[in-house]
Amino acid sequence: MLPSYCPSCKQPLKVRKLQCEACGTEVSGNYTLPVLTLLTPDEQEFILKFIKYSGSLKEMAGELHLSYPTVRNLLNDIIEKIKSYEQLL
């Protein structure tokens, strides 16, 4: 899993360098991590499933063996979290 928070001070990490494994080119800068990487692995997995099921919470509830309101509440929690991250960034 890509770390997104500093293990020392818990602030959001930024990307300084990216490297091409094929030709060795390095790209340096100061890049902000996408908001989605700030979510937990379970939340990212949830979003991927949401997209794969074309946004159908009903189908997701069946797949995850959870009730519809539980799945809807999980989605609402993720939405609130993303909004708060966007405000911070």
């Binding site: 063996h65 959870l66 009730s67 519809y68 309101p69 539980t70």
Partner: peptide
């Protein structure tokens, strides 16, 4: 039980 079951099935 409502984490797993709600709606008309629970009814």
């Amino acid at each position: 039980p409502f984490v797993r079951i709600a709606g008309y099935k629970a009814f």
